[in-house]
Design a protein around this nucleic acid. Structure first.
Length: 484
RNA sequence: GGUGGGUUCGUAUAACGGCUAGUACUCAAGAUUUUCAUUCUUGCAAUAGGAGUUCGAUUCUCCUACCCACUACCA
């Protein structure tokens, strides 16, 4: 959800400004490669109606340059060759250096510091005591670069500089570089950059003008500012979005929360490598328009009191000034409300076509016109298309069981005889019952019991207008077998 | 621990120095109805705490508290 919302805001912003929305896959962590994740992302965005202008063609990430996709490839793992030169450029400019410390050595340092209640950070203080191109003789550096393969390029964070930043959402933010560390930018082991380098290089190369991303990136913004400065590139504008929080308690929304609390956290069903399935909004019956609408309102509002906005209205109304700074707790009830609103806006005709597969799954076949008629009668009682069935299956099949409590209440001989006589009369039921001064509620509910199998449900007239008077009479007679 | 960010009804938010702090979801009550639901009406409910600036602070400043993120050869 969080990822889709970020994509949505980027999409809305791009479209509003006549820009292009580009999909780039940041897969520089080979350890975390997840088969199928890329296809999932494309399908999920597509379902939401968030269609990239660049980077995707025929449902696949583009690898070959073309006029439509001038910045290809769009998968960072296919851009390996690009990054090394930029990393070297930073070293030659004095903004970075080679580091030869093994992960074991660094882990040992961390453990050592931790034992003393401190935190080890690789920075201007500690780098002079570690194995890198700043401390080792140049011939040794040259030898290690040539002969070993687990070295990295690290950013040489200035020791005392205040980086002044402007965030489109948070405003002015200042950070002193003394509190920052020498981040790894590139690693020889897999010939890949880390996020920081790859992101800045690609954003520059792909002519990105705005970066709208999650708040978790705010702490690395100073590094990114410095990277743009080091390369001498014009930097894009940044906007850091508030986090999506779990509905109850504290903390951000996590994969597990959904199933625990009964709502999806994924746009589409997702099966992870352990075979665990996470429910998706699509499979839960949400309309993509409703999902997009509710996602847009998680941390943003149009500045007026509208709540139901289509994608094109969202594009028009979107503004980063109205994005809130604080985390937004997700409200599953409101999510359902959105879907209900969208369901009601759909035509009976459209709902009927969505409903028909569900009917078929229940072994029911019905004429299209009949389904349309049924939908018009029950759509107000549904939040999801599936509710059209659960709300009134008796419009398609006669009840075979009766709710015991309601049978006891309305299925008494006395009322049943009245009900039977009334329905068999073929006359207007209310009129017929009133003329005889019979108890309206009791008799009507007895008829409803016969028609639906329970004491609650649609109005008698509505039911009969669907199933017809003959079927109604049949059902009332059938109930007779249970009356004593 | 350090750094950064945040804090208005239960939830999402409006009010970007000035009316009785508005709206939606939820919840409660009432009306309508042959039941349930819908619909309609009404109601409950908030500026984290403390200083300061000001004629006036939800809004600006500072302090405290609490929450969150980051603090990896992950993104």
């Amino acid at each position: 959800m969080g990822g889709v919302r970020t994509a949505l805001y980027n999409y809305l912003y791009a479209k509003q400004h006549g820009g292009d929305f580009i999909l780039r896959i940041e897969d520089t962590d080979s350890q975390r490669f997840v088969p199928g994740a890329e296809e999932y992302i494309i399908e999920a965005l597509n379902w939401c109606g968030i269609v990239p202008d660049e980077g995707v063609a025929d449902g696949k990430i583009v690898s070959e340059k073309s006029s439509r996709h001038p910045h290809a490839p769009y998968r960072q793992s296919e851009r390996r060759a690009i990054y090394r030169a930029y990393a070297e450029e930073l070293v030659s400019k004095g903004w970075a250096y080679y580091a030869f410390d093994s992960s074991e050595e660094l882990a040992a340092r961390r453990a050592e510091a931790e034992a003393k209640g401190q935190t080890f950070i690789y920075n201007y203080e500690t780098r002079v005591g570690l194995r890198n191109s700043l401390t080792l003789p140049s011939d040794e550096v040259a030898r290690l670069l040539a002969e070993t393969s687990d070295w990295t390029v690290r950013f040489k964070m200035p020791c005392d500089r205040v980086v002044e930043m402007d965030d489109l959402i948070r405003g002015h933010v200042e950070v002193n570089t003394a509190t920052l560390d020498d981040k790894v930018l590139w690693k020889k082991a897999d010939e890949l950059p880390t996020y920081h380098l790859a992101n800045i290089v690609d954003d520059h190369l792909m002519e990105i003008t705005e970066v709208i991303r999650g708040e978790e990136w705010l702490p690395s913004l100073p590094l990114h500012y410095l990277l743009y400065e080091a390369f001498g590139w014009e930097r894009p504008q940044f906007a850091h979005l508030p986090l999506l929080l779990k509905p109850v308690g504290n903390g951000k929304l996590s994969k597990r929360d959904g199933d625990k609390m009964g709502f999806p956290v994924f746009p589409l069903n997702w099966v992870n490598s352990d075979g665990e399935t996470y429910r998706g909004y699509r499979e839960d019956g949400y309309f993509p328009e409703a999902f997009v609408n509710l996602l847009a309102f998680l941390g943003w509002n149009p500045g007026d009191e509208r709540e139901i906005l289509s994608m094109s209205e969202l594009i028009e109304a979107f503004s980063l000034e109205h994005v809130s700074k604080s985390g937004a707790k997700f409200n599953p009830e409101k999510a359902k409300w959105y879907n209900k609103e969208y369901l009601r806006m759909k035509s009976d005709e459209e709902l009927a076509s969505l409903y028909e597969p569900i009917l078929a799954a229940h072994g029911v076949s019905a004429a299209h016109d009949y389904v349309v008629k049924v939908v018009s009668v029950i759509k107000d009682r549904a939040t999801f298309v599936a509710d059209l069935w659960t709300a009134a299956p008796y419009l398609f099949v006669a009840p075979t069981e009766y709710v015991e409590k309601d049978l006891a209440k309305f299925g008494q001989r006395e009322f049943y005889d009245m009900a039977l006589e009334a329905i068999e009369s073929g006359r207007d039921l209310e009129e017929f019952i009133r003329e005889r001064e019979w108890p309206m509620g009791k008799v009507m509910n007895c008829i409803r019991l016969a028609l639906t199998g329970s004491g609650s449900g649609l109005g008698i007239h509505e039911i009969i207008s669907c199933i017809g008077i003959d079927e109604a009479v049949r059902r009332v007679r059938a109930l007779g077998a249970l009356i004593n």
